[in-house]
Write a protein that binds this DNA or RNA. Structure first.
Length: 432
DNA sequence: TCTGGGGTCCTAGGACCC
DNA sequence: TCTGGGGTCCTAGGACCC
């Protein structure tokens, strides 16, 4: 059997690159894109990375640095990034048959070149870079390896070491050369090795990606479990991570968000909880599912140790699985009442839907008064709700007070939002 | 004053059953 | 005083990812 060749293509500094696409004047300006609520940096331009700013740095921590270096910050504009992502994946779809493309995330895509043995993948990688740049306008890097974990590593190498010019193909290297390259990178660069595992590995003297690749997978399983065994095997070229052409149906839906500012009362918090359940239930209906379990969570500010801390969560199995916003919201508010305690400074609330299953398979409760055929009037109502919110924006229609009143006190801060250039006619880029 | 949000998988431990 | 063993299911928590 021929060894497989898998490419990982990803967009460099994705959100920053998307913003610059519409604002060429920001091309060399050091800039970051902020998380929801303008909280912390989730994307950094090369200039900002060079200043040593880490992923996840709170924006208010780097205000001085920003002033000093003229760092520009933008709120995240997911409508824009989602649209650009769709175009990026569409271009890549031209390079392999559909079953050989795996859309891994908003800015990453695996391509399986199995069966295209005569292709020089370094050349192909360069052609892909040029095409995405020309057709979509985004800069990408390409890594090629015989497993997904190796492709991920190769991609990282292609980005970090300029001599690769954005494309690194590990499959053309000898094993000693490959290990030597791996020895140049800290073990934490391995896909699946985070901060915690890295600490433990370093304690054992496993410091580089190469060190990890030389380990015995079975032995690593005894110490760290099956995930680590697979990671080591993948680094050795033994494929262990499944290929997923179709995104699997979600097993859990979460909708949560920090408030614009702290909230103190049950009534105040009930509003965002209803709103979040509106969003969660909409996602649930989009995947044609019903939820058998509803959960609610609350959080105080863990970064303020001087505050009394209380971050409870609770969930409950429903008597009958449902996709009905009103039903799910009633349960969520019931849970919220059970959870809420006065005297805390709450900064975040969220809802969870679990035990998801396809609607066709759902069974009514034994004690349900409704006949087994579904309640079509409720379904029509939910469809109207989804259409209205899809057309006029989230929060147009909701259950109870969700989205009806203005979102005073809990709406997100997005003070530096760019226009929705590509998804809203009102906000098209003007060229003068 | 201001620190994201949405996911997955695995494991350990308790409840429960025979 | 001495109090089984094994399987399954569920849940919470920890680790990771983008």
């Amino acid at each position: 059997m021929k060894p497989s060749r898998i490419a990982l293509v990803d967009v460099n500094n994705c959100y920053v690159s998307c913003e610059r696409l519409m604002r060429p004047d920001l091309e060399r300006v050091p800039m970051v894109v902020l998380s929801n609520n303008d909280g912390c940096c989730v994307a950094r331009s090369a200039e900002v990375k060079a200043l040593g700013v880490k992923m996840g740095t709170p924006w208010f921590h780097m205000k001085d640095l920003a002033k000093q270096h003229g760092i520009r910050a933008m709120s995240s504009n997911y409508a824009l990034y989602g649209d650009m992502s769709r175009r990026f994946h569409a271009v890549l779809a031209q390079w392999v048959p559909p079953e050989c493309q795996e859309i891994y995330s908003i800015d990453e895509c695996f391509l399986d070149f199995a069966g295209q043995d005569r292709l020089d993948l370094t050349e192909t990688g360069q052609a892909i870079r040029a095409q995405v740049k020309q057709w979509v306008g985004l800069p990408v890097s390409v890594g090629i390896g015989s497993t997904k974990t190796l492709a991920k590593f190769a991609n990282h190498v292609g980005k970090k070491q300029p001599q690769w010019n954005g494309v690194c193909d590990l499959t053309v290297l000898s094993i000693p050369d490959r290990l030597a390259l791996m020895d140049q990178f800290p073990v934490q660069e391995t896909w699946g090795v985070g901060r915690r595992l890295a600490e433990q590995l370093i304690d054992l003297g496993i410091r580089t990606v190469g060190d990890l690749a030389r380990c015995n997978p079975k032995r690593m399983r005894e110490r760290f479990g099956v995930v680590m065994e697979r990671t080591v095997a993948e680094l050795q070229g033994v494929s262990c991570v499944e290929w997923q052409t179709q995104p699997p149906a979600k097993q859990q839906i979460v909708a949560s968000r920090s408030f614009g500012g702290p909230l103190y009362t049950l009534d105040q918090i009930a509003e965002p909880v209803r709103f979040h359940m509106g969003r969660a239930a909409e996602k649930l209906r989009q995947q044609g599912g019903v939820a058998g379990r509803v959960g609610v969570l609350l959080e105080t500010n863990r970064f303020r140790p001087q505050d009394p801390q209380y971050s409870p969560s609770r969930s409950i199995s429903l008597p009958a699985a449902s996709d009905d916003t009103a039903v799910l919201t009633t349960w969520a508010v019931t849970l919220l009442r059970a959870l809420f305690k006065a005297g805390y400074r709450y900064v975040k609330a969220g809802v969870m839907l679990d035990d998801l299953r396809p609607k066709e398979m759902s069974q009514g409760s034994l004690f349900d008064s409704l006949p087994p055929e579904r309640d079509h009037r409720r379904e029509t109502l939910m469809a109207v709700l989804d259409r209205a919110n899809g057309k006029w924006g989230r929060g147009t229609m909701g259950v109870g007070s969700a989205g009806v009143r203005d979102q005073k006190g809990w709406a997100m801060n997005r003070g530096m939002l760019s226009p929705c250039y590509t998804t809203n006619w009102e906000e098209l880029r003007a060229v003068s």
